[in-house]
Design a protein around this nucleic acid. Structure first.
Length: 579
RNA sequence: UGGGGUGUCGCCAAGUGGUAAGGCACAAGGUUUUGAUCCUUGCAUGCGUUGGUUCGAAUCCAGCCACCCCAGCCA
């Protein structure tokens, strides 16, 4: 039996997603029937910024794992700190998740929609002696907390009578106190080596309106108090989060086990269910880090606010919105997250992995086209002036289903300046004076005259086409080079944005870097205004193309003021030629 | 020097006592009207380190070292 299953697994492992410790854990829970066969996960962003590629890992993990085990994944906004949150972020996050290809279970959830229950449970904790109202100011509380190596001291209010705490908590909620006057704290252990257990704050006073609840509340629950209860109310089974929350797990468990289990169940989505009610459990995994990339929300926000980039959706940003505009596909991001794996060791993934994921997807799915970035005019003397030869080219070299397109060939065409050399380096396969080269999808041409301007620069190449080489190899010789081209008269001018990594250093967030601005790559965006594309590019509804020999490009959603179409370079083609 | 974690090829990552998967990168060939794709081959006598247990250790035990996280009424 073991042999059989092993064989089967290894045979499938080529195509099926890799296993990892969280799947192993859930498989065990499924086998033991711990949650009655249920798997419910959740993605719990705080709406205080835009989602980035790091979030994508968590999104993919939570949604795919639920799907693989026949469960569901909730989207819950963890909105307990209205000072930093806004509806704009709520909207963008929902949009980004859908774009990635995931759909959450039922309605969007908000921690703030549990405020009533949370408040009631807080009263229960006070009543059962698990929490008290503390009058220490934030500064005093810090002093009382102790340090990493010294135990803290008990608050003078720690043994406040239950009735008094209850009354004060009611007054806090009624708005009778100023911010910082009082807080509700869990009564755990001020000497705990885990600082999170030193009577953590559960509620604080904030006279601020909330993007979802308006002015209904002036006290707001903290993350630690809210998250575990929200999970429990939603019937979450596996609460997946990143490693830095590991120290919070004891608190997560403490809060839930200090509450009455039946009260939680009764307030949860499982109240009327026959499923056994089992509390959720938190499991941590390492967050995604990418080299040459800054992922901190603070820093990303700073780049937006300081105008280092054009916005949250600047194509150089590691945000979902930015990558989308850059031309990344949802599948490429999902595949990338899958290929990176899930573990507990904190590594830094090489950008090359991401690049591979997008090239892999676009190579299969992006139609080919030609675009000349830096035009050099060629006159083909044996094509009559005014004649337009419509060539039929395959949109994809391997996938006939992607169809064909017409590409006009005329007497005057453009090739890229870099495809002609008067002084070619060894191994140069493109056009040289007196040499031959294949025009992609068209004829072999020979350059017999180089025309120069007053300062010696090449202005025009006079060539002639071997009319017998359309769709066949030339007779008696080999022409190695193939270059792309665009008709001078039929081609369309476009603007192209060549993007490169934003930073010159592997870790722009390293401790020894005082200012990330000093590490910016000055060439992260190069605007090319001289580019010309073949007409088909502007005719269809395609957004993404491979401009042959140049890279993958994506039509920008936001044309520049010039009114010309803009194409963003998603990624270059691999280039094994060091020239 | 408190507590919690992590250390397997340049990078990610399987492996759970039976003799080091896979992907990325890299290198060398082959195909090619994209110097792309694709195909083939190569790439850890070694699993932070030192000891121990065992017929046998990346896997078990002990010590040591390195790195990450925690002292918000942020999440």
């Amino acid at each position: 039996m073991t042999d059989l299953s092993k064989t089967k697994q290894s045979e499938e492992s080529g195509s099926s997603p890799a296993s990892h410790f969280i799947k192993t854990l859930i498989s065990q829970d499924q086998k033991s029937g711990k949650y009655g066969g249920r798997v419910q996960t959740r993605f719990p962003p705080e709406p205080n910024g835009y989602l980035h590629i790091g979030h994508a890992k968590s999104i993919c993990l939570n949604f795919t794992i639920a799907a693989e085990y026949g469960g569901q994944c909730n989207l819950r906004f963890d909105d307990t700190n209205p000072a930093k949150e806004s509806q704009e972020y709520v909207d963008s996050i929902k949009d980004n998740i859908r774009w990635l290809g995931f759909e959450w279970d039922g309605e969007v959830r908000y921690s703030s929609s549990y405020f009533d229950t949370l408040f009631e449970f807080a009263n229960q904790l006070i009543a059962s002696g698990h929490a008290y109202v503390c009058s220490l100011s934030p500064e005093q509380a810090r002093e009382y907390r102790g340090t990493l190596t010294e135990a803290g001291r008990n608050s003078p209010d720690r043994d406040r009578p239950v009735a008094e705490s209850l009354a004060l908590f009611a007054k806090m909620r009624a708005g009778e106190f100023a911010e910082g006057d009082y807080s509700l704290r869990a009564k755990i252990d001020m000497a705990s080596p885990n600082i999170n257990m030193r009577d953590p704050v559960l509620y604080r006073i904030r006279h601020i309106s909330h993007h979802q609840t308006g002015d209904q509340w002036c006290i707001y629950p903290t993350y630690d108090y809210t998250h575990c209860i929200s999970d429990a109310l939603e019937g979450i089974t596996h609460s997946l989060c990143t490693l830095e929350f590991e120290d919070h797990r004891p608190l997560y468990d403490w809060i839930l086990s200090s509450l009455n289990l039946e009260s939680i169940r009764a307030a949860s989505v499982l109240a009327d269910s026959e499923s056994p009610y089992v509390l959720p459990e938190q499991t941590e995994f390492a967050k995604l880090k990418l080299n040459y990339t800054m992922m901190g929300k603070r820093n990303l926000r700073a780049m937006v606010e300081e105008g280092v980039v054009s916005g949250w959706d600047d194509p150089r940003m590691p945000t979902i919105a930015g990558m989308r505009r850059r031309g990344f596909t949802p599948a490429s991001l999902r595949n990338f997250c899958e290929s990176v794996g899930v573990s507990r060791s904190e590594g830094v993934v090489d950008l090359g992995m991401l690049e591979h994921a997008i090239r892999d997807d676009l190579d299969k799915h992006a139609p080919r086209a030609m675009c000349v970035m830096n035009p050099l005019k060629i006159e083909i003397d044996n094509i009559p002036e005014g004649e337009v030869i419509q060539l039929s080219l395959a949109n994809h070299p391997k996938d006939e289903a992607m169809g064909r397109r017409e590409v006009p060939l005329t007497r005057e065409i453009f090739i890229d300046r870099s495809d002609f050399e008067t002084d070619p380096p060894p191994g140069f396969k493109r056009l040289i004076a007196g040499g031959e080269v294949r025009l992609r999808g068209a004829h072999v041409i020979k350059c017999h005259h180089v025309e120069r301007g007053s300062s010696g620069e090449v202005v025009l190449l006079r060539c002639s086409a071997d009319l017998d080489t359309l769709g066949k190899k030339p007779e008696g010789r080999k022409v190695k080079g193939v270059i792309h081209w665009v008709s001078a008269s039929e081609g369309k001018p476009v603007t192209v944005h060549l993007y490169d990594r934003l930073f010159r250093v592997e870790n722009p967030e390293a401790k020894d870097i005082d200012d990330y601005r000093k590490c910016l790559n000055p060439d992260s965006l190069i605007e090319v205004s001289s580019a010309v594309v073949e007409p088909s590019v502007l005719e269809g509804s395609n957004e993404r193309f491979q401009f042959e020999r140049e890279g993958y490009f994506c039509k920008d959603v936001d044309p520049t003021a010039t009114g010309r179409p803009v194409f963003n370079r998603t990624i270059t083609l691999r280039d094994s030629w060091a020239g």
